[in-house]
Structure formats: structure tokens, C-alpha cells
């Protein structure tokens, strides 16, 4: 590989990762324009909008993945499953 972006050392998984991040941002922006979200109180200690819940959800996902790496040698898919469950919980009832 070469070209002007060689210094950034791109790989397919990280490109997919950032693609997903930008897709998520774009779809949240579209969704926000079509169907604005209002702050409400769920099981989280603060009032949150849809975007807040997504952000808190993703941050906690990162922590779950790190905790999994710290605690066990089992496959990382376990952490991913936990994250999926958590995301549903926080987006729906957070």
C-alpha cells in the first residue's frame, strides 16, 4: 500500500470502525432533524436526550471491553454481547 494516507497506517477494521462512527453521527443528525428528541428521566441519574444516551452507552461499552480484557482471556465477543445488551437497555430505558 502507499499513497498520501500511508502515514495514517489504515487497516480495514479501523476504517470500518470510523465508517460506523460517521454513519452513526450522520444518522443521529438526520433523526434529530426529522424527529427531535426531548430530555427525559430514565434509570440514569440525569435527564438525557437520545444523543446523551447514545454517548453514555458507547462510553460504557468501551469500559466494558477494557474490563473484559483485564479480567479474562475468553473471546472478546463476550464483551461485545454484553455491550449489545447494555446498549438496548440504555437507549430504551436510560
Amino acid at each position: 500500500m502507499g499513497g498520501p494516507l500511508e502515514w495514517m497506517a489504515w487497516t480495514t477494521p479501523t476504517a470500518l470502525f470510523f465508517g460506523a462512527v460517521f454513519l452513526m453521527l450522520a444518522s443521529m443528525a438526520l433523526l434529530g432533524a426529522r424527529n427531535p428528541s426531548y430530555a427525559r428521566k430514565g434509570f440514569l441519574p440525569i435527564e438525557t436526550t437520545r444523543g446523551d444516551r447514545l454517548y453514555i452507552g458507547l462510553i460504557v461499552c468501551a469500559l466494558i471491553n477494557l474490563a473484559w480484557l483485564l479480567a479474562t482471556d475468553a473471546t472478546q465477543l463476550g464483551a461485545v454481547a454484553l455491550c449489545a445488551l447494555w446498549m438496548v437497555l440504555v437507549l430504551r430505558w436510560g
Binding site: 500500500m1 500511508e6 497506517a9 489504515w10 487497516t11 470510523f18 480484557l69
Partner: peptide, 22 residues
């Protein structure tokens, strides 16, 4: 983004890198 890319590879030199996952 570059830091994220670096964090999943072993950068041996310019143009030489190995995927190491997590």
C-alpha cells in the same frame, strides 16, 4: 484516527506493519 490505527498494529518502520489486534 492515526492513533487508533497504530493501536492495533505493530509499526516496524515506514510501510512495514503487522496487524496485532487487541
Amino acid at each position: 484516527m492515526t492513533v487508533v490505527n497504530y493501536s492495533v498494529q505493530d509499526i516496524l518502520g515506514p510501510g512495514q506493519r503487522v496487524w496485532v489486534g487487541n
